[in-house]
């Protein structure tokens, strides 16, 4: 079984985000970009399936500018087998991503697609679900455990109040949650080997997909600054303030 893992290049989670002065977006100049953490988890899961003999090949795909190839190389250094870069400098929104991924799925015929539940830049949480709808495949979102059986998968999800287990027929879409696994290091020997792994370059037009944005960004703003708290002398004052000022009691 082939496993397909889409990966997105995003601002590293350690970077303190700055909004551009003209409110059109986020300042990306000289900022470290990394693989979306949920995608790292997806890559790790796919590699573990391969190591367990459940998968035969792990293919990673990224959609974005030329530098997205570096994100693919990271996945290859972790242990994925080959990569596909669908190169574009345009903004690609979740629906366009899902359509392009459908094109890749049609071509590659994977038995399983593991998608990060969301990307930490736009937090859309849509791509996996849209891809599932476009393909007409089953989906299990927010996976915290994946067990592959014979032609089926059992996926555990963390839901309010406990765990939910879904059984679904393969091929299927799984979106990964934080606790699915802990991704491995890309060690130096594997970073060096990853340079030699195959990476195919494509364009959105190769899949006949119109990636023009359907959504328009009006304004990007910093969240409001949190104002300083106050100290109260005793419990009575606290209860009083919660009643009168905070209005929560």
């Amino acid at each position: 079984m082939k496993v397909l893992v889409p990966v997105k290049r995003v601002v590293d989670y350690n970077v303190k985000i700055r909004v551009k002065a003209d409110n059109t977006g986020v300042d990306l100049a000289n900022v470290k970009m990394s693989m979306n953490p949920f995608d790292e988890i997806s890559v790790e899961e796919a590699i573990r399936l391969k190591e367990a003999g459940k998968a035969t090949e792990v293919v990673v795909v990224s959609i974005g500018p030329a530098q997205a190839a570096e994100t693919i190389r990271t996945a290859l250094a972790m242990g994925a087998d080959r990569g596909i870069l669908i190169k574009t400098d345009e903004e690609v929104q979740p629906l366009a991503v899902a359509k392009l991924l459908k094109g890749v799925v049609d071509e590659e015929q994977p038995g399983l697609v593991i998608v990060g539940k969301q990307a930490i830049d736009d937090d859309s949480n849509q791509t996996g679900q849209m891809l599932s709808a476009l393909l007409g495949w089953g989906q299990a979102t927010f996976a915290s455990k994946v067990v592959i059986g014979d032609g089926s998968a059992e996926v555990t999800r963390e839901v309010d109040g406990g765990l939910e287990t879904l059984s679904l027929k393969l091929p299927a879409i799984v979106t990964s949650d934080l606790r699915l696994n802990e991704p491995r290091y890309a060690s130096l020997p594997n970073i060096m080997k990853a340079k030699k792994k195959p990476l195919a370059e494509k364009a959105p037009a190769d899949y006949g997909v119109d990636i023009a944005p359907r959504l328009k960004t009006l304004k990007v703003e910093e969240p409001p600054k949190r104002s300083a708290g106050i100290k109260v002398p005793d419990v009575a004052t606290l209860v009083e303030k919660l009643k009168t000022e905070a209005g929560v009691l």
């Binding site: 590293d12 000289n30 470290k32 570096e70 190389r73 890309a186 060096m192």
Partner: peptide, 20 residues
């Protein structure tokens, strides 16, 4: 690591190694 200033000396593989 977090401030990727342009440099003629470091390749993506160097940066990857730094992250590791």
């Amino acid at each position: 690591l977090l401030r990727e200033v342009p440099s003629p000396y470091y390749t993506p593989a160097h940066r990857e190694f730094r992250a590791t």
